[in-house]
Design a protein around this nucleic acid. Structure first.
Lengths: 146, 146
DNA sequence: AATGTAATTGCCAACCATTTGCAGAAGGAT
DNA sequence: ATCCTTCTGCAAATGGTTGGCAATTACATT
């Protein structure tokens, strides 16, 4: 399992005393289907296709709410926009092509080792890890096979 | 040596056909002395102490220019502001306390290993690495010694 | 099913960091 | 010293995000 189902997510909402509105259900669906790489405006655009009356404020308000509840996370892929993704049980990191903007997710056991090492060395307890590796993908001339 | 001296930086400017202005010299000095964790507005404030006539536009324009030329880099410590630092020969990463906002820089050989591993696995050539580890520092209750 | 009520929405204006247009100032080659 | 072009300062524009408020809606209670 990589992330909560929309249904489970709604249960969390309820547990926090928040209401389950049509808009929230819709937004969760959109964020889920966006697979992690939609910004607020794109989420708004897609949500409108289902419900043309939804407002941009509602999108922002709910992205912030869901973020506070820890149900989605905000990703900084570039300096321009924040992207949103359902929060995974298993964290992942990003490999970003600076030419075509392709984003590839990765995970590696080295990350855990790094956390342990730095955590001990600097006396921190680490809760979240953000890693972005920026470069050129194979198609954009970055690989050694090119 | 960790980063270019201001003088060397100015040489790069000249080499790119850009002019060496008083404002640019001043901004480089401020960014250098800020040691990597000033946002645009703070840079503006400090620059004004030296030259009260400098404008915020000039600050932004030059931060962007210096960034394009690769002389400084933009760091996303939080969602609010971008911070700027002289670009180091040796990259470093950030350990951030979510409570007191303290930022500790770190480096580890594991990062190089991670780059090699992922680079090979995913066929990317990696140019830049951003790592932020967010958690609680010892003082804020995060350490195992508490 | 109808009611009460507090959370939520949509609309619109405000906000604030950043960018842009333009006229005047200044770097730097000659 | 002159000329040409880049750069600056100012002020207005931009664009993503937030906030106020009246109308709407979720949902617990009856």
């Amino acid at each position: 399992m990589t992330s909560l189902s929309d249904e489970q997510t709604l249960v969390v909402l309820r547990a926090q005393g928040r209401r389950v509105t049509l808009q929230r259900k819709l937004l969760l669906e959109v964020v889920r289907q966006g697979e992690g790489h939609l910004d607020a405006d794109e989420i708004y655009r897609r949500a409108r296709e289902q419900d043309p009356r939804i407002s941009l404020s509602t999108v922002y308000r709910n992205l912030n709410l869901l973020k506070e509840l820890g149900l989605i996370s905000e990703v900084h892929l570039d300096q321009e926009h924040h992207h949103y993704e359902l929060r995974d049980a298993k964290e992942h990191y990003h490999l970003i092509c600076r030419d075509c903007d392709r984003v590839v997710e990765f995970h590696s056991p080295l990350v855990g080792k790094l956390m342990d090492q730095i955590s001990g060395e600097k006396d921190f307890s680490i809760e979240r890890v953000h890693i972005d590796l920026v470069g050129l993908c194979g198609d954009c001339g970055g690989s050694k096979s090119g």
